[in-house]
Design a protein around this nucleic acid. Sequence first.
DNA 1: TCCCTGATTTAGGCATGGCTAAGTTAGTTA
DNA 2: TAACTAACTTAGCCATGCCTAAATCAGGGA
Lengths: 143, 143
Amino acid sequence: MPAKTSGSRSSAAVEDYLERILELINTKGYARVVDIATSLRISQASVTNMVQRLDAEGLLKYEKYRGLVLTIAGETLARNIARRHELLSEFLQLLGLDQRVIDHDVEGMEHHISPATLRAIEALTDQLRRRPALLARLQGAAS
Amino acid sequence: MPAKTSGSRSSAAVEDYLERILELINTKGYARVVDIATSLRISQASVTNMVQRLDAEGLLKYEKYRGLVLTIAGETLARNIARRHELLSEFLQLLGLDQRVIDHDVEGMEHHISPATLRAIEALTDQLRRRPALLARLQGAAS
DNA sequence: TCCCTGATTTAGGCATGGCTAAGTTAGTTA
DNA sequence: TAACTAACTTAGCCATGCCTAAATCAGGGA
């Protein structure tokens, strides 16, 4: 079986891991198993398992007991996932929703949004930002 | 353990079943195992399994080899799920997205949208409908 | 250097929600 | 009414991803 690189859809779990790993690397400079586990609120054992799988899929380089780094493919994917997360989050913020609701909904939705839909939401967000009157009207309706 | 009625979050799978069952009942007058299976593109055995579970959860009444009907709780829930699906679908249609993309994304997202977010999107949809100029600008960007 | 401890890994399970194969049921048809 | 067949159910299995408990590793201090 050839190494799976850009093909083969990533699962929601894989996307969550990559997103957190990139975030940890960006903020702390590295991503240890214990940090990933804490951040995702899952056990360290589960993280070890998934990290081995991500290594097998070529999304990161992993050395037992030592640590891990994202591959180019993994980092590119992680960046796209992070960007999607941010765009959705900004869109919902514009609608005046509570940040906890936003975090919950984005976490659930983000794995199911196709590129075309994301582009459309991005364009909509841009337009909404320029229409404060419209926004004011919307934010009255939110929780 | 008391019968679980309105409490306890439904899984995405449960929501998908209820949505299809209501749709079948509305269009054909009944929902047989074989119809549900075909509609959801899963095996009849899987449907039997889930239908028994939905019966145990009080969302429908099921008689072996005979058929099923939604309970009040099940129908209410199914209607809410269907409405959420429609609202999301209409919103994405307004953005000018391809119907196949819409179907795919809504199916994925719908189970993760909270009531507050749904209300906000509903309000946004209402406002967008009144602004053809804005819509025209958006639909240029979509695939 | 030896040991202690926190970090990590392995082993073995569990729940969800799919599947196929092998029966069972019941309505239709001859 | 007997049998055929489509619909349905049961039994047993699989993958994904999570878990806990029990090793194992590695770095720092005595």
